[in-house]
Design a protein around this nucleic acid. Structure first.
Lengths: 205, 205, 205, 205
DNA sequence: CATGAATGAGGCTTCATTCAT
DNA sequence: GATGAATGAAGCCTCATTCAT
């Protein structure tokens, strides 16, 4: 996760890796800095040389997700859409899922931590809303309107469309990577199904 | 929340209410028993007279959700369906949402705690999977198959149908009650939209 | 020192006594709460049940001095002066020294702590200035002016008189109780000498 | 303070200056070596290259006071007195105050540290008593006896005279430079007053 | 010589839990 | 049954000191 970040020393990478694993497993509040130190193979004091407080360590663990996972969604994919690279909304969604899925998978612990801790840290929450709630949502609204204007998706409040799209994706991601990753998953087929239902619904004829 | 439970003394109700509020706000690990005692207006020792450990207090707070919220879903609604009370899957879903939504709303703190703490307590997790994961899922599979047999919903793996249905519901519940409850929500209309999309999809024509 | 304070539990008295001794011996910053606990024969946590922070413990140790030592100086003696109980300034000074000297002696550790820590704690300093710098000094000015008006002491700025008087007293107190208490001291005689020099100076003829 | 000491490197001077300032402001025990390093603009390790321990740094800061401030008092002034340069004890005192006062002023932080830390470091205390307590006191006794023999000051135990003289000086120095340096001080006049009182007392007629 | 990352002991403080009243 | 003082382990963090670079 942090292995390719060249600005970090070996010790720092170890600390971040240990913290990530423990925060994901036990939660931030229930993880002690001494545990992190032991797992990282450093002295406890070393943690505090690099991160002034335990909270700062949490932010250092979690903020890359915001930057690395979410920023690309905004910048790359949105431009592709407006550059007409995707004929349909469905293609756009499929590309987004496929493109990001591996990334999400390898950063899953970070994302889990982010989601789990979000309700308890108002600063994290604000940072998140600032980055995601406003920017990402805004861009997605544009995209939805773009395809509505093209007559490809129904004329409904964009937020509802977005929520349903997001929920559909999560209906695959969460069981696939969080709840029962050990099951046999045929990724391509599952994505097909989701997009199919999202497009034409579950009702017959 | 606990006011109508007649087996509990006044003190116990106060403790449970205080614990619920604090666990929901700060998380289990970050809430101290002394805070709970202060908020409940009892002495610290009193908590431990009723609940052997802090963990047991968490279980006492959280287990009613499993019993009161989830068990009825299974038992009542399933029977209704199988008793043919609902002509269509959509009607079933709508009834389920409407029936439960107020209940969910007033028990939201408990549900938040359950969801937030689930990943960190393997005993809770097992209990949940045992009671909900298996039983509820099993019953829902029956329901889906029931409507598929009636030819009302498409012939797709029931789990995918269930996941999409659940996700659709959450796409409304989560923003409505957790993320931005302060927005103006027109419940009936939103539920209509969700069921509409779930039925016929977002694609035009 | 704290044995006669009836509002304090035995443990609290022990903690205050231990803290006093150690603060006096090693200074506030160099004394650890674990040392205090050990010396007081209590668990470290017990200290923090009675005093929220180490700083509050310092204040609890030191503030009685302000109240018990200095307040009486102001209230009792000043009134005596104005009630004409003392014919001369010298008699007033002598009474003040003799009256207070035993008290000072038994509270010496507290006074040492107060003086030693005063420069490092701006809150203590402010509190001290508020209680002493203003009130005590103001009252002493009145006293000096009182005896100047009676024509008993020379017409010089009261502050200089006060400083010289205080310095004279300290020139006995400090060596007597702080620097070399082990020497043979004839208290009455020494006080006589000081008052003599203060009255008529060291010059001959 | 240390700028003119040619045996010290620039870094050492910086360290000593920073240490002096911080020790005076917060006390020895409450000052961290990292603070000193930061204020001196050097790395933490550099401090320990020059001073084996923090304690040695304190001694290096404080010992010049003993050597530079107190030794001269003894050697120079005593000789002057015994060489009959001063007609009266009063003139001697005046010369001593005026001569030293600027020096004291510019070395005030060092003197503050010395006084504040003396009670807590038995080695410092012993060193002080050995060098000052005995030597200085002994020489002063000679001086007092010298003027007593000349019939200029009253026949009282020299130690009492010395203590009163010292106290008188401090009654000016301490308020002037430590307690309220911001007030308007007329140095010459104040010194006059002190010597006047010391000579003829505060009593009228 | 100077650096600053690393250390681990120890600092202050909080916590869940116990128990005499 | 209820209390809250007492506990001591553990938590987060700071510190003086060392050492490879």
């Amino acid at each position: 996760m942090f292995t390719d970040d060249q600005k970090l020393t070996e010790k720092q990478k170890g600390i971040l890796a240990a913290a990530t694993e423990l925060f994901a497993e036990k939660g931030y509040a229930a993880t002690s800095t001494s545990e992190i130190a032991k797992k990282a193979g450093v002295a406890e004091g070393t943690i505090f040389r690099h991160y002034k407080t335990k909270k700062e360590l949490l932010l250092s663990v979690v903020s890359p997700v915001m930057v690395k996972v979410l920023a690309p969604i905004i910048k790359r994919d949105l431009n592709k859409v407006l550059d007409q690279e995707f004929e349909t909304y469905q293609e756009f969604i499929r590309a987004m899922i496929e493109n990001r899925i591996e990334f999400v998978q390898s950063n899953l612990p970070l994302i889990r931590i982010l989601i789990q801790e979000l309700p308890f840290h108002s600063d994290l929450k604000e940072q998140f809303i600032e980055h995601i709630g406003k920017e990402v949502l805004g861009r997605f609204r544009q995209i939805v309107k773009h395809y509505q204007a093209k007559g490809q998706i129904i004329d409904m409040h964009p937020d509802t469309i977005i929520r349903m799209t997001g929920a559909s994706i999560l209906s695959y991601i969460v069981p696939r990577y969080v709840l029962i990753p050990e099951a046999n998953w045929n990724d391509e087929e599952e994505i097909d199904r989701i997009i199919h239902i999202l497009s034409t619904g579950i009702a017959t004829g």
